[in-house]
Simulated scan of single mutants.
Amino acid sequence: MKIDGYDAVIQYDPEIDMFRGEFINLNGGADFYASDISGLHKEGKLSLDMFLKMCLEDGVSPQKQYSGKFNVRISPELHESLVLKAAASGKSINQLVVDSISNTIANGQ
């Protein structure tokens, strides 16, 4: 769900019989609850507005900054296969992984 240009992930919480929304890519936590879609939009906007106001008051950027680096743990066997595939493709391991992730995201998988 997108609210005012910010993305939120919505999940159903059976313990309280409500939907829970959580904004992602923010520099802190901002979540909200409602029992229907219109309620999610309303409560999400209230939660986001409060979060953005607090960021403004504190002088911090509301959006999370990403370094472009992350670690992935894989089995030694997969690591070996990756090295072989990269070498056979004439690519670095990093480029092979970047290409694979880009293709996966572009194809909506």
Rank of each mutant, 00 (worst) to 15 (best):
K85C: 12
H41D: 04
A87V: 12
V83M: 03
A88T: 08
P76S: 07
G90K: 02
V97T: 07
L56V: 06
E15P: 00
M1D: 06
Y33W: 15
S92H: 05
S102A: 15
N71G: 08
D4V: 00
S102N: 14
V98Y: 07
F32S: 03
K64V: 08
S35A: 14
L26C: 11
D99C: 06
N107Y: 02
G68I: 00
Q95H: 10
N25H: 14
Q95D: 09
E43Q: 15
V83A: 09
D31T: 13
E22H: 06
G44Y: 07
L46K: 11
N94R: 02
S35H: 12
P62V: 05
I16G: 02
K69L: 10
G108H: 10
G59E: 09
I74N: 00
Y33V: 10
A88Q: 14
G39V: 01
V97C: 05
L52G: 09
H79R: 03
P62C: 05
S35C: 13
A87Q: 15
G59Y: 11
A8P: 04
A8T: 02
F32V: 07
E77V: 12
I105Q: 11
I105K: 04
I105H: 04
Q109K: 11
P76I: 10
M18F: 09
L96Y: 09
M54V: 09
D13W: 07
Q109R: 13
G90A: 01
N25M: 09
D31K: 07
K64T: 05
N71Y: 01
G68D: 00
E80W: 07
D49A: 13
F32A: 08
Y66C: 01
L84K: 11
R73C: 07
I24T: 11
E43V: 07
Q11I: 12
K53E: 15
D58G: 00
M54S: 15
I74F: 00
I16K: 12
Q11V: 14
G21P: 12
A30R: 05
L40W: 02
Y12E: 02
V60F: 03
Y12R: 03
S92Y: 04
A106F: 05
V83D: 06
D49P: 00
P62D: 02
A8V: 03
E22S: 15
I16S: 08
D31I: 12
A87M: 05
D58R: 12
E80T: 12
I24G: 14
R20M: 09
I10S: 05
V9K: 15
G108R: 10
F70C: 02
S47F: 02
C55L: 06
